[in-house]
């Protein structure tokens, strides 16, 4: 297996505030890496640094290619998908139009849309509805489908289960598993330990902008260790 995404010494600062310091990680094709952290730990800053939505220090390498000073749009075109915190679907465009725009990153857009709908067939019946009219859970599914329709090789997911009903949390976990099976490298950021457990993924624990530990989703004591980290 080759590493699809390698991050070395990533740092993010907002003016004088350091949100992320010296984070290094790597995700292989078809692998899920879950980064767990409490509110304000720096999870979103890490993903936005990787995808280029905020400027960062350190290096991000995608399939051996250093992304350097590429902006977010160029990184997306290179195959780095990012499902943003807060969904960020286009509210006045229909579900179909949202997917169509996402699929333009794909070498074969029509196939990209097909792949996304195969993953999330429930979107099909809402195809003509404006994204802004969907429920939060439906918007989350659309945001994931829009990213997948672009055929990314790496997918960054920012708290996709946030605010979802328990049934939808399970659905999201299943969808992430299916995305992994497509061979996509998934970097997932979460507050819920049970998501990492259900996926059985590798885990990094982020605290105040720094990685403070590694674990595995199948570890028996994962929950205790995370809670200790959250409370620290």
């Amino acid at each position: 297996m080759s590493a699809a995404l390698v991050v070395e010494n990533l740092g993010v600062r907002y003016g004088g505030v350091t949100a992320l310091r010296d984070v290094s990680l790597s995700v292989d094709e078809g692998q899920i890496l879950t980064v767990l952290g409490a509110n304000g730990a720096g999870k979103t800053s890490m993903l936005r640094g990787i995808s280029g939505l905020v400027s960062s220090t350190g290096t991000v390498t995608h399939h051996g290619r250093t992304l350097g000073r590429l902006d977010a749009a160029a990184r997306a075109r290179a195959g780095l998908g990012h499902v943003l915190e807060g969904r960020h679907v286009f509210p006045d465009l229909t579900v179909r139009e949202n997917l169509h725009l996402g699929s333009l990153l794909s070498p074969k857009p029509a196939e990209g849309v097909e792949r996304a709908l195969a993953l999330l067939p429930e979107l099909e019946e809402m195809a003509g509805r404006k994204a802004g009219r969907l429920s939060g859970g439906q918007q989350q599914m659309l945001a994931i489908a829009r990213a997948i329709s672009g055929s990314p090789s790496v997918l960054l997911l920012d708290e996709p289960t946030n605010g979802l009903a328990p049934m939808l949390v399970q659905r999201t976990i299943d969808v992430i598993g299916a995305i992994q099976e497509l061979g996509v490298a998934v970097l997932l950021v979460e507050q819920r330990v049970e998501v990492a457990q259900a996926l059985g993924s590798e885990v990094l624990v982020l605290q105040r902008g720094e990685v403070v530990g590694t674990a595995h989703g199948t570890d028996d004591d994962l929950e205790d260790r995370i809670h200790t980290a959250y409370l620290a």
Binding site: A72, A76, L84, H88, F90, P91, D92, L104, G150
Partner: peptide, 14 residues
């Protein structure tokens, strides 16, 4: 409608 959402799918704001 959404500048970050657009950048995340490769639409360059520039």
């Amino acid at each position: 409608q959404d500048k970050d959402g657009a950048a995340a799918i490769g639409i360059s704001p520039g």
